[in-house]
Every structure is written in structure tokens, then in C-alpha cells.
Design a protein around this nucleic acid. Structure first.
Ligand code: MN
Ligand code: MN
Ligand code: MN
Ligand code: MN
Lengths: 221, 221
DNA sequence: AATAAAATTTAGACAAATCTAAAAAATTAA
DNA sequence: TTAATTTTTTAGATTTGTCTAAATTTTATT
């Protein structure tokens, strides 16, 4: 409990956690890509993390977080998302600006700090991109969402989160006034390019590409 | 402008700045003591900082910050004190708890973050310990203060800052209800042990040791 | 001024995290 | 099921920041 790991190790655990969530066997190359480093460096670090029992690792086979490794990852993610919320809600940053700063803030150690921050912010459940914020014990409430590209037509729903969270994507959505919480409805699906005509509450209809629609997740209950 | 220095280098610059302020020639041993490291490590780092033109250093002689070195130090101090203010005023931490956390937060890079934080906090001029907060350009307003032990008798004044800021000291002051901004007056000076009898507004008179009085700084206009 | 003591620097080593180039293993394709 | 390709690991370096022990320089004392 509450051992301090290096920033680098925390980043590895977080990246492994995210890759595990999305799918599949977490490969050395995928980690190198995610962490902007070289495969050889990943192998080195995996050995160290295995040594510390933060993950299971057999060479040439994949890697899997232990309960402890998962716990650490979730604490980092909690911190990341709470700081993002703080930056947007209290310091008026745009949602496309906060990820980079949160990448630094998430490594600040104090547990008391983050719990106080959580209270100060009113215990938000999701971050500015709609991603769930783990509670103090690392628990996340799962929710039912679906990509807008897979959603039914003429059935109002609400934007819940964003897939690709690149700065470019977030700026585009800001421009199109598609925000977390926006109420919208698909009016038309065009088979030629799979583009969608959507209507956001109180706005005129707009067209969005399939690529965009695949990265907008909406409520599906 | 805005090159990123390592946490370690930032800490060296800050420590050198503080020692320079207090007095004298900044020695290798003094730095080792301040940074909780060994003199040999200090020498190593001084060479690197000289290389980067952050300070002037001739071996066996002292060390002195360049304008650039001073600028970096002041930015770190600005961040440290703004974060301390945030922790006390927004997250309800005690003034004895915040230094340690601010030691980490002060190394977060974003300039925009700190300027936004400054505005969010209402551009405070002093931190929770009464120390002045440099502005965005690194300027500090100097002010006229004197140790309570050197202050005149029967002349009301106001507590402005604290010298020794150890956790023990801050806890003692909290216990005695001596805070930044407290209005008080020396009622008696006892020659035997140089202890003082003081009266804080709306409280009964209390006695404080000379050691304590030397570390309480009051307005002197 | 010579000697002793203290402060500072150098030499050599180490841990953490990274890299490049080469070797080994696994996967895919012929 | 070989051969080619891709993935992963190993070997050996490098950088940053630190350390201990020994050498050097400065400062203080006789
Ligand atoms: Mn983020
Ligand atoms: Mn986010
Ligand atoms: Mn402090
Ligand atoms: Mn302070």
C-alpha cells in the first residue's frame, strides 16, 4: 500500500491498463507505440515491473497486470481525470488543452491531496471527455454506451464520451458544438460514405463523417 | 525562454536563491545541507548548471546565480507559494501540511496553468506563511518587517510572516493562535530569558520564548 | 610559517531509464 | 514445412543524478 513508484513506471502501468481495457493481448510493440519509446526499453521495464509483482510477464508471451498493478493504474487514472476536471471547471481550460497538463499532475503523490480535490470538485463522476473517474478505492461504474455510428435513427440520445481524444478531434467537436451532454438525434444515414445528418437540440442539422461518428459515444439504455 | 529544467536542477536553483537571499556566500556544504545530499553531488551539479549558464561558479570559491538562474528560481518559488495558497484556501489544508506537497507541485511545467491558478486564487500577494508571491514576471514586492524579538514594547503591530517554517514551529503557532495577520502587542520583556509577554487582540496575554519571538516577523512601518 | 582541521573537488562506481544493433523466437507466407 | 518476415529480447552503451573514498585546496591554529 502507498509505495511510491517512478513516473515512468506509473506511465507503463497506466498504458498497460488502457490497452488491456480496449481489448487484446498487450504487446511489446503496442506499449512502445503508446509510450513513445522503443520496444527494447519496454522489455527492460517489463522485467522490472514483474520483479515488483505489478504484472505477470513471460517473455515472448503477453503481459497482464496483477491486482496490485491494476490498483496503481486506477489511482493514476483517478488523479489524471480529477485534475482534468479541475482544469476545465475551475481554471477555464478547453477540453483539448488539459490532457497534456494532467499527464504531469497525475504523478503528484499525496493521497490526501487527491481526496480533498475530489471533494472540492464535488465528487464528479466523469471527466471533461466523459470518461469515468474511479473513486477513492479505484472502483469505476461501468456504463452502457455505443458509438454514434452504430446508433439507431430518429431516437434522441445524449453524448456521453469521446473515443479518439486527440487535440484535433476535440477542436473539431468544439467547432461543431458537440459536447459531453449534448442532446442529439440521427436524422439520416447516407450509404454512400456512411456520413450522418444529425440534429443537436436547439441547433440546425449538421453532417458528420463516419470517422467522426465512430468516435462519439452516446447513451444506450 | 521556457526551457524545461529537471526537478533536481530546479531544486538546486531554488536552494541557491534562498541561501543568497538570507545572506552570504553560498557554500557547497550549505547547499548539501539544504538539499539533503552530499557535497560531492553538489559540486557535480554546480558544474552542469554553470555549463548551462544558470550560475557563475569558480571552484573553491562560491556560486552566484545569473539573471537567467534567478529568473528560473523565482518561477519555481512563485509556483510553490501559489500552490500552498491553493491548498490552504481551497482544499482546507493546515499551513503546516502544505510545504511538502508544494515541493512536488512546484515542478509542474505549464506557465499557463500557473497564471490561470493565480487568477483563480484572486492574485494573492503572500502565501500561507506570509511569504511574498512573485508575480508572473518574477517580481517580488519587498516589505519592511522585523523579528518580534526586536520590536518595541506597547506598540501594536501585525504578524506578517514566519521564519523557521518547520512543521513543529507551525503547529506550535497554531496552538498559540498566532496567525498571519494577528494583531498583537508586546506587554513585557523579561531580561532573564528574553521571553516576552504578548497580548493578541481578543485573547488573554501569553508568554513566548525568545527563540519563538525571533521567528515571528511583524509589520514595521 | 608550519601544521592541523575543515571544506571542496576529483576519481571511480552505481542505479534508473533509455537507446542502437544484433540475436533469438514466433508468426506468416510460400 | 521450410523460408521469409515480424516481433521480441539481449548485449552493450549512454545520460542523469547520486554516492563513497581519496586527493586537493582553503582556512584556522599553534
Ligand atoms: Mn487525458
Ligand atoms: Mn480525459
Ligand atoms: Mn513552502
Ligand atoms: Mn510558504
Amino acid at each position: 500500500m502507498q509505495i511510491k513508484y517512478s513516473t515512468s513506471k506509473e506511465n507503463y502501468l497506466k498504458a498497460i491498463f488502457h490497452l488491456q481495457q480496449e481489448n487484446k493481448n498487450v504487446t511489446t510493440n503496442a506499449l512502445a507505440e503508446a509510450l513513445q519509446t522503443k520496444p527494447a526499453s519496454v522489455t527492460d521495464m517489463l522485467k522490472k515491473l514483474k520483479e515488483q509483482k505489478l504484472l505477470l510477464y513471460e517473455k515472448y508471451y503477453g503481459v497482464k497486470l496483477t491486482a496490485e498493478g491494476k490498483k496503481v493504474a486506477l489511482q493514476i487514472i483517478r488523479k489524471h481525470r480529477l485534475w482534468e476536471y479541475f482544469l476545465v471547471e475551475k481554471l477555464a481550460f478547453g477540453w483539448e488543452e488539459v490532457h497534456e497538463i494532467a499527464e504531469e499532475l497525475e504523478h503528484i503523490g499525496s493521497k490526501k491531496l487527491i481526496d480533498r480535490l475530489d471533494d472540492f470538485l464535488g465528487n464528479p463522476r466523469v471527466d471533461p471527455h466523459g470518461d469515468p473517474i474511479p473513486d477513492s478505492n479505484g472502483k469505476i461504474e461501468p456504463f452502457k454506451q455505443v458509438a454514434l455510428s452504430d446508433y439507431k435513427i430518429n431516437k434522441p440520445t445524449i453524448v456521453r464520451s469521446i473515443g479518439n481524444q486527440s487535440v484535433e478531434m476535440l477542436e473539431l467537436l468544439k467547432h461543431k458544438k458537440i459536447l459531453i451532454g449534448s442532446k442529439l438525434e440521427i436524422k439520416n444515414k447516407f450509404d454512400f460514405d456512411l456520413s450522418l445528418e444529425i440534429k443537436i437540440a436547439n441547433q440546425s442539422p449538421i453532417t458528420i463523417s463516419d470517422q467522426l461518428a465512430k468516435n462519439i459515444f452516446v447513451q444506450n439504455d
